[in-house]
Design a protein around this nucleic acid. Sequence first.
RNA 1: GGGCGAAUAGCUCAGCGGUUCAGAGCGCCUGCCUUACACGCAGGAUGUCGGGGGUUCGAAUCCCUCUUCGCCCACCA
Length: 886
Amino acid sequence: MPGPEFELPPQYDPRTVEPSLYQRWLARDVFLPRPSGDPYVIVIPPPNLTAVLHVGHALNNIIQDVLIRFERMRGRAAEWLPGTDHAGIATQNVVEKQIAAEGKTRFDLGREAFVERVWAFVRETGDTIIEQLKIIGCSCDWSRTRFTLDTAYSRSVRETFVRLWEEGLIYRGHRVIHWCPHCLTALSDEEAEHHDTNGNLYHIKYPLVDGSGFVTVATTRPETLLGDTAVAVHPKDPRGKPYVGKKLRLPIANVEIPVVADDSVDKEFGTGFVKVTPAHDPNDFDIGMRHKLAMPLVMTEDGRMGGPADRVPRELAGLDRFDARKKIVKLLEAQGLLVKIEPHPHSVRRCYRCDTVVEPRLSDQWFAKMKPLAEPVLAAYRRGEFKIVPERWRATFEHWMENIRDWNISRQLWWGHRIPVFTCTKCKHQWADRQDPTTCPKCGGPVEQDPDVLDTWFSSWLWPFATFGWPQHTDDLARFYPGHTLVTAPEILQLWVSRMLMSGYHFMERLPFTTVYLTGTVRDTKHRKMSKSLGNGIDPRDVVQLYGTDALRWTLIGGGSLGADVIVDPDDLESTFAPGRNFANKLWNIGRFILSQLPRDVATIDSVKRTSLTLADRWILSRAQATIREATASLEQFRLDEAAKRCFEFVWNELADWYVEAVKPRLDDPAAKAVLAHCFDTALRLLHPVVPFITEELWQKLPGRKADDLIAVTDWPTTRSELADADADAQFARVKTAIERIRSIRAEYRISPKTRLAAAIVLRGGDRAATFEGERETITRLAHLESLALNGAALPTGAAHAVFGDGSEVVVALSGSIDVQQECKRLATESERLEKLISGLAARLSNENFVSRAPAEVVAKEREKERTWREQRDVLAGKLRALGCV
RNA sequence: GGGCGAAUAGCUCAGCGGUUCAGAGCGCCUGCCUUACACGCAGGAUGUCGGGGGUUCGAAUCCCUCUUCGCCCACCA
C-alpha cells in the first residue's frame, strides 16, 4: 500500500498559501475575460479614494467576486472591471483637512498646487485600496483598471455634458440651493441629508408700520429674519386677511416689508403668518417669485451674517449664523418682540461629506433636466427589463424616479472635472465645448471657462460605458456593454444606480445591467454602520492576517442572507470570524485525509462499475448531485448564503461525518477511492467562488492535476442524472437513524466506548432487512466506531432500546445491568409524549373539513403517521410491562 | 408627515401557508486526544416564533392592530 506522497500540517495556515496563489492566478491571466464566449460583466462600484476600505466594502466586493468566479467557472467570458472614483467633495475635504493641520487653506496654495496635492494623496490611497482588493481575493481584470479622472474618462464626461447641453437639458438656474458653508460649495438634493433635530420654534412679533399692532410669525431660524422681504398669510385665513397689503417693520433690520397672501401657507401651522426669506429658503424663494419680492442675501458663503447695510446691523455682521441666532433672540427679547420659544423637533439638512448644517442659499448653478432621462428607465423597470434584488426596494426606487427633480451638477470645488462652459468676455456668448477654445467663435473675443467643477456623480454615472472607451466605438464597448449585475449599497440607489440607468439608456440606448443587487450593511453589535468616523471600522487586512481571506469571505457570505445586514463585533473578531476559520481548517483536514488515500492514478467515477458501489457510495454520490443542483440554483438566484450553507452541509455533515467514517474499513477498495476523489473534487469546485484560496490549494494536490490546471478556470460541476439515487438516499437515511439511536442510547446510559455492547436492528418488513443485509459492512463499521458489535439476532429484553419513525427499533443489551427505575421513567415519559401526539392527530383526522379539503397525500401521510405512532405506543407498552413498570 | 423593513434559543441570524417548520453557527451541559481535524468527535438542554385580534381544515409563515427598533423619502416655516 503506497503511503501518502506528502505530508500536510494538521492546521491550515492561510498566510503561507494565499499570496502565492494570487500571484499564480495573475501570472496565468485567469482574471482576464476569455477571448471568446458569452460575456458576463460586473463593473465595480469605484471606491472613493478618501480612505482605505473597511469590512463593509469587503462584503460588497466579495459578493461581486463570488458571482464573477461562479460565472467564470461556468465558461462565461467574465469581466470584472475595477477602478476608483475621484470623489470630488469628499477627497477635497480630506486634503483640506490635512492642509489645515499645517495651518493653511487651499487658497494659500492656489488652485494648481492644491490639485497637485490632491493627486499625490489620491495615488497613495488608490494603491492601498487596490492592494486591499487583491488581499481579499478579488479577481478583477486589472488590465482595465479605471479612474474617473483618467484622460479618456474625462473625455467621456465632457462629451456627455456637451451632448446634454446641445439637447437643451442643461441650464443655468438662479434659485435657492443647498449650500455647505464648510465645503463652500453647492450640493445636490441627494447630498444634503436629513437629520432629525430637537430645535425650537420662535414666535416673533413684527410691528405694523402704522403702529396699530403686531403680527406674530413663527420660525425655526430667527437669524434669517434679516433677509425677510414679506410676511405671507393664506388668502382664506380670516386671521391674516385684514393685514394683507399692510406694511410691517422688520425688527432689528428696520426695513419695511409687506404682508402678502399666498396659497402655499399652511393655515394650521404656527400662527398662520410666515416670514418670507426668498434668498435663504426654497419655499420663500417661490413666494418671492410670485410676488416679485427683493431677494437679499444676509449671510456670507461661509455661514456668517453679512449683507446690505440696511438689513445687517454692524453688531451682527461677521457673526456665525448660530451665534447670530442667539444674539438676535436676545435683542428681540430686549425689545419685547419675542412672544415665546417652544421646542420643535424638525429635520435639518446636513452636508453628506462634512456633516455641517446646510444653508439654503440663492445662487447660480448648472442644472440637468432629469424628467426626460428618468421616464424611459422607469418604464423599462415596469416592463421588467431589469430587476432590483431584494425586491423590497421597488417602492423606494419607483417613488424616486416618479418624483425626480432637476440635478444641480455644479460644485464650487477645485477637485474634479472642470465644467466645459465658456463665455466670451466681449460678446457674452456662452457655449459648451468638446475642446478648449482660445477665442470666441462668434466675435473672436477672449474666452473664460466656468471656474466650477462637475458633481462627482456626473462622472460616476457614466461608469458602465465610459470605462470601456465611450464615446469611441471600441471593441470592449461592443463586447462588454451592456453588463449584467451591479452590486452596491442601497444608500446610493438614487445617487448612483438610478443615474447610471438613466445615462445608459440615454447615451447607449441600452440599460447598463440586468440586475441590481443591493447588499446589506455591515454593522457593529450596537447596530451602528461600520465607518471610519465612528471608529468601528475594521480593516479587512487585519482579519486576513488573523484568520485568512477565506475565513473573512466565508463569514461575510455565509453569515447573512440576500440584502441582510451583517453584524461584526469589532471587539471580538475571534467570535465573528472563527466559524470561517474553523470551516477552512475542516476542509483542510478532510483534504489531508482523502489525499493521503488516493493513488496517483485514482480511477474516475465513470470507470467504476455501478455494482461495485456500496450503499454509502451511492448515497454520497447522490448527495453530491443534490448539492450541485441546489447550490447552482441558489447562486443563480443570488442567494450566495444558501449556496455556501448547502456546500458546508455536504462537506461537513455528509462527506466528513458520515461518508468518510463509513468508508474507513474499505479504504483499499478502488471504488471507494474513486468516490472520495470525485466528491472532494466536486465540493472544492462548488466552494471555490466563496473560499477561493484553500480550494485552489487543495485542488492542486488532487491526483491527475497538470501543471497549468487551475480550479479558478476549471468547469463548474454539472448535474448527472445517473448519479442521483433516491433509493440510496432513503436507505442510508435509515442507517443513519439507526446509528444515531444507538449512540444516543449509549450516551444516555453512560456506556463507555470500552464497554462491550450488543445491538440489533429489528426491522419491520423482510424487504428492508434484506437491504440492510447487503450493507452489513457499512453498519458493522459504524457500529465498530461506537464500540458496538452489531448482529442480526434478537437480544434479551429489558435492555435499553429505541423505536423510530417507520416502526423499526434498536435494542441494545448491556453486559452488565441497567437501572430499571431510570429506564421505567424514561419509557413512561416517552409513552406520555406519544399519547399526546396521537390524540392530537386523531382529532385532526376526525375533522371532516381536513379530510375533505386538504390534499389527499397530506391526509394519507397523516393517517400513516397515526398508524405508526399507535404501533410505537404498543411497543412501548410491551416494554413497560416487560420491565415490570407500573 | 409618508413609505419600507425587522422583532424566532443567552448572542448573531435562516425559515415566510401543510412535507422533521421549530432550525444553523457561536455559547452552554455530558462524555471522548476513536490511526484527517480538540479550529475536532459523539450525545444533550434551551424558544407560549414581540402583544392582541382575524382568515383557514391547518399560520413564525397571510390580513388587521398595538408596542419596540432600524432604514429610506419629504420645501410645513
